[in-house]
């Protein structure tokens, strides 16, 4: 509950800051961006993040699960290790590498975001399956559930919330990383922030950064709800107890 109040107040502060700067009309010699510009950029930003996270999930979830399967376990170390190392590379570097490889433009921005966003998704998908108590799987096998039945009836429901958490973390990170997309020809709120940076005008930076932060908080909150909704009832109680 407290957690909700903090998030909500933060959101109010960020949105008020945005509104305030926008209503100023002029900062020093620069004109502030209009509400129309803001909405357009925010929407573009969201779309870019959305597409990138969808791509990252479509690749990351199956990949993370696949390396837990017998026979493919050997690939777990390179994949998960690679993901961890990959995440330690600064996002700016990932985006910078993409541009010369794929050319400037929205696609290259989205690919860079997807690659960077895939890492927490793979890791969580892998951990979600590995975290299942082996006794549960042994009991299921011993009772005669087929491999498919174990996956569908046991592993997926138990892994779902953890997988979803990976997608949430990835989304929140990608909203931030997407600020840099404009450097390689993408769009989004980064355009406003960077304009402020080049103009050396803190308030214009704020005009781009504040709504970005607000978007990250909002999406994080919404996806957390989805995560809770996906958590089977019997598992939710564990969270309340412990």
């Amino acid at each position: 509950m407290r957690h909700h109040i903090i998030l909500l107040s933060l959101l109010v502060v960020l949105l008020s800051a945005t509104t305030w700067v926008t209503s100023l009309g002029k900062v020093g010699i620069y004109t502030t961006f209009s509400y129309g510009d803001l909405l357009y950029s925010a929407w573009a930003h969201f779309r870019m993040v959305f597409v990138a996270v969808i791509i990252a999930s479509a690749i990351g979830v199956p990949l993370g699960i696949l390396v837990t399967r017998p026979g493919l376990e050997k690939l777990a170390l390179p994949v998960i290790g690679g993901a961890s190392v990959g995440q330690s590379i600064p996002s700016l570097a990932v985006i910078a590498i993409m541009a010369p490889m794929l050319g400037f433009g929205l696609q290259s921005a989205i690919v860079a975001l997807a690659i960077y966003g895939i890492l927490p998704i793979v890791r969580n998908a892998y951990a979600s399956i590995k975290a299942i108590d082996p006794a549960i799987i042994e009991a299921a096998r011993g009772m005669g559930l087929t491999r498919m039945q174990i996956a569908r009836k046991i592993e997926v429901p138990l892994a779902r919330p953890v997988i979803m958490a990976g997608i949430r973390i990835s989304t929140v990170i990608t909203v931030g990383t997407a600020e840099l997309a404009v450097l390689v020809g993408g769009t989004g709120l980064g355009k406003i922030t960077l304009t402020g940076v080049f103009a050396r005008e803190a308030l214009i930076i704020l005009q781009g950064a504040a709504p970005t932060a607000a978007m990250a908080i909002t999406l994080g909150f919404l996806l957390e709800r989805v995560e809770q909704w996906m958590t089977p009832r019997g598992m939710k109680m564990a969270n309340h107890v412990s």
């Binding site: 006794a135 549960i136 799987i137 042994e138 009991a139 299921a140 096998r141 005669g144 429901p157 089977p232």
Partner: peptide, 18 residues
């Protein structure tokens, strides 16, 4: 089919938590 006709109980129980 064989396993479905043989009850199986283990030390760690392994009840399905969900």
């Amino acid at each position: 089919a064989l396993r479905r006709n043989i009850g199986y109980a283990i030390q760690d129980v392994g009840l399905f938590p969900h």
